[in-house]
Design a protein around this nucleic acid. Sequence first.
DNA 1: CCAGACGTTGTT
DNA 2: GTCTGG
DNA 3: CCAGACGTTGTT
DNA 4: GTCTGG
Length: 227
Amino acid sequence: MCARYALFGPFSPGNLVPGFVEHVINPLAGFAHYNIAPSLVNPVVVAGGGGPGLESMRWGLLPHWAKDPKIAYSTINARAETLVDKPAFRDAWRRGQRCLVPVTGWYEWVDQGGKRKQPYFLRAADESNPMMFAGLWSRWTDADGKQVATYTVVTTEAMGEVRRVHDRQPQVLPSEAWDTWLQAPVPEAAALLQPIVTALRIHPVGSDVGNPRNQGPSLVERLADAS
DNA sequence: CCAGACGTTGTT
DNA sequence: GTCTGG
DNA sequence: CCAGACGTTGTT
DNA sequence: GTCTGG
């Protein structure tokens, strides 16, 4: 899957996620483009909009028992097929700590046979609203006793045109499933973890998307197709 | 019993 | 080539 | 996932 | 915290 995804606007808290305003934490009001990377704080949607210790969330789920926060770099994704059993994710799953991750799109890098990998932007066909990835979140306390909230993006088998660039993709949830994912009992949420065809536009972009220090709308401008 | 992992992607 | 930081 | 570092001695 | 490997 993506080790980068993108969210851009301008969005305000009011239109970031229509109907879910009260659930959004850290909405990053006013940003024009956000190139998201592991360990960075960005918007997520949780039932009730968070609370103490949930003022913001970092990408890369830290289980409550984690000692080294570096493991967050390898818990940016949780496989839908196995998250129920994996020690790193199952506690969050059992506790119903699910979230929605709003994005405009995500990136995939395609191997070019020796040459440098070509990044592509997979962009929601509906540009007016973010799409939603399924996520899990966790509370973690660092060595100084400071509370940190983190989350992971669920992945599943790629479907439709995504398969041209990769065999896995984030678990996208259709709008009618959002409330269920946030609020329903575990068995109902489990039923939503199914591969889904998503309406996307896919186009090549510049290699500068690979560095999260690079920000701005120019990152996702279409690159002329090579061949 | 203790020590060490606990995860994903992709690549070999 | 391989590990770390983001 | 990609980008970027990858080393030592000594000095601030 | 809890499981696996030694």
